[in-house]
Design a protein around this nucleic acid. Structure first.
Length: 506
RNA sequence: GUGCCCAUAGCUCAGCUGGUAGAGCAACGGACUCUUAAUCCGUGGGUCGCGGGUUCGACUCCCGCUGGGCACACCA
């Protein structure tokens, strides 16, 4: 099966972007060697003995003789020296040098290979391992196959691919060219694996709940709206799985968790992507104090499993996870900064006047809960670098959390703040149906006051509570932000393989 | 959504107060049997994001648009 000559010319032109001259600059020699590309489409690399690069390297460490290996990957560099040539092939975990020699391959085969193979191609090689004079582990190639042709030229080897737009739109190029990008997503995968291990080992059961929902509740955010044709109803992409997970606890699954995508129709910036990954987990018969302990253990495990240390640097801040996390009450922290007591802020007029004074934007028109939220961000969050639990939030801010056992103005809730960012949010769950209904009505009033994001009433959930939700504690952790922390990334787009971008126009 | 900044060869980038575009790498041809940012000789490659305007003349100045980045706003 030959690659027809037309491919080099016709296909790129149809895409409308590339001039014929540009195509020739890609692989200008292909039209001349067309007849020789007989392997490309049909040949399948004999994967039986094929290893990835890291396996080959391990193999050699165990047996430092001329081990026979077969390995496949992308040819990322090539140094032709006439009757011998060196190159490197790469996969996600590493690269290994290959050495081709005319004496070994035979003159005809060697010349053919030199003509067919280009940097960027996927090749499979068989041969024996040895070390070069400089000591580099290398495959002496006894046979090489072209497994897939790269018609386009790879990004530059030295500077890599820097243009962020291209890195996001063509992430595969980023992954080929930039080790840092590969490392980030490997850590992301390890972090999620570690998280699963942790929760599984604590008796949690992984579940899946609807992403298409007819009421978008469980968090405070604007939803994406879509339409189901057969049912002829509008539906929402979930903004949180919370209510469904609690219904499962009602059903007797006492420990459940879900790792999945949430969708919020809000702005995009360095810490917000419209779709993002959260884990939410719920445990019957625990309270928020238990969850704080659990969270510390979880964070430490994930750190050790991914980066192998409890001391990391994020955006220039040195973070220490080895000591017990600090705990500070919401209104104590606020008092430290402002000198004003809880009762002052719980008066809406006071809170508003104060917010206006300190320059909170639009403070005149915000609802009481929004005001408190802004004051929290302004005075407390901005100041917290080391892992800190802010605990005991005002009730108006937390429609799904249980009232504090010692203070009816507060709820049993904590947020874990690290380097000014909210990483986790948890509370003892409100399990009294009457009070939950009343809190939903309060949200409805907020909505009427112009807060479009106030939570919606979910009657199904209320009915479930009426059957009895055991005392339960629940928590949500933003995986993307956690991975940002683990990889010292300053933008959420660096830790999402394909971040949301505006489509290119033609 | 608002403000500021950015868009030049496949990639990374130069290009002064307006005079018709350059480098390195890559590509293509050639030389070279332990190279590794290989080296050496040679060649080609551009709708300067898109559309208007000013001008004898625009990559350059002005306006609009598109895409992106940062900050703010928004968003637990």
């Amino acid at each position: 099966m030959n690659i027809p000559v037309e491919i080099q010319v016709v296909i790129p032109q149809e895409k409308g972007k590339l001039s014929p001259n540009t195509i020739v600059s890609f692989r200008g020699h292909l039209d001349r060697i067309d007849q020789k590309l007989t392997l490309v489409a049909d040949e399948v690399f004999d994967g039986e003995k094929g290893d990835d690069v890291s396996t080959v390297k391990e193999k050699y460490d165990k047996d430092p003789n001329r081990e026979k290996v077969s390995v496949a990957g992308r040819l990322i560099s090539f140094r032709d020296q006439g009757k011998a040539a060196f190159g490197h092939i790469q996969d996600a975990d590493g690269k290994i040098q290959i050495y081709m020699k005319m004496d070994i391959l035979g003159e005809d085969r060697y010349k053919e290979i030199m003509e067919i193979i280009d940097v960027g191609d996927i090749v499979g090689v068989r041969g024996e391992l040895f070390r070069t004079m400089t000591g580099e582990l290398t495959v002496e190639v006894h046979d090489i196959e072209l497994l897939a042709k790269s018609l386009r030229v790879l990004p530059e080897k030295w500077h890599g691919l820097k243009d962020v737009e291209q890195r996001y739109r063509h992430r595969y190029l980023d992954l080929i060219a930039n080790k840092k990008a590969r490392d980030i997503f490997k850590i992301r995968s390890k972090a999620i694996k570690s998280l699963r291990e942790f929760l599984d080992s604590r008796g949690f059961m992984e579940v899946e709940t609807p992403i298409l929902q007819s009421v978008a509740s469980g968090a405070i955010a604007r939803p994406f709206i879509t339409h189901h044709n057969a049912l002829d109803i509008d539906m929402f992409l979930r903004i949180a799985p919370e209510l469904y997970l609690k219904m499962l606890v009602v059903g007797g699954f006492n420990r459940v968790y879900e790792i999945g995508r949430n969708f919020r129709n809000e702005g995009i910036d360095s810490t917000h992507n419209p779709e993002f990954t959260m884990v939410e987990f719920y445990a019957a018969y625990l309270d928020y104090n238990d969850l704080m302990e659990l969270t510390e253990e979880l964070m430490r495990k994930i750190l050790l499993d991914t980066v192998g240390t409890l001391n990391i640097t994020w955006e220039g801040q040195e973070l220490d996870f080895s000591k017990p996390f600090r705990r500070v009450r919401f209104f104590d922290a606020l008092k430290d900064k402002t000198g004003k007591e809880k009762d002052f802020f719980l008066n809406e007029d006071n809170a508003r006047r104060f917010a206006v004074e300190v320059g909170i934007p639009k403070a005149e028109s915000l609802t009481h809960s929004k005001l408190l939220d802004k004051l929290f961000e302004h005075f407390i969050e901005e100041d917290l670098i080391q892992p800190t639990f802010v605990i005991d939030f005002p009730k108006v801010l937390s429609p799904l959390a249980k009232t504090h056992r010692e203070d009816p103005d507060l709820v049993e809730r904590f947020e874990l703040i690290i380097n000014k960012q909210e990483i986790a949010n948890a509370y003892t769950e409100l399990n009294e149906p009457d009070e939950q209904r009343e809190r939903f009505f309060q949200q409805l009033r907020e909505r009427e006051l112009g807060d479009e994001e106030a939570m919606e009433i979910d009657e199904n959930f209320l009915m479930a509570l009426e059957y009895g939700l055991p005392p339960t504690a629940g928590e949500g952790i933003g995986i993307d932000r956690l991975v940002m922390m683990l990889t010292d990334s300053s933008s959420i787009r660096e830790v999402i393989l394909f971040p949301t971008l505006r489509p290119e126009k033609e």
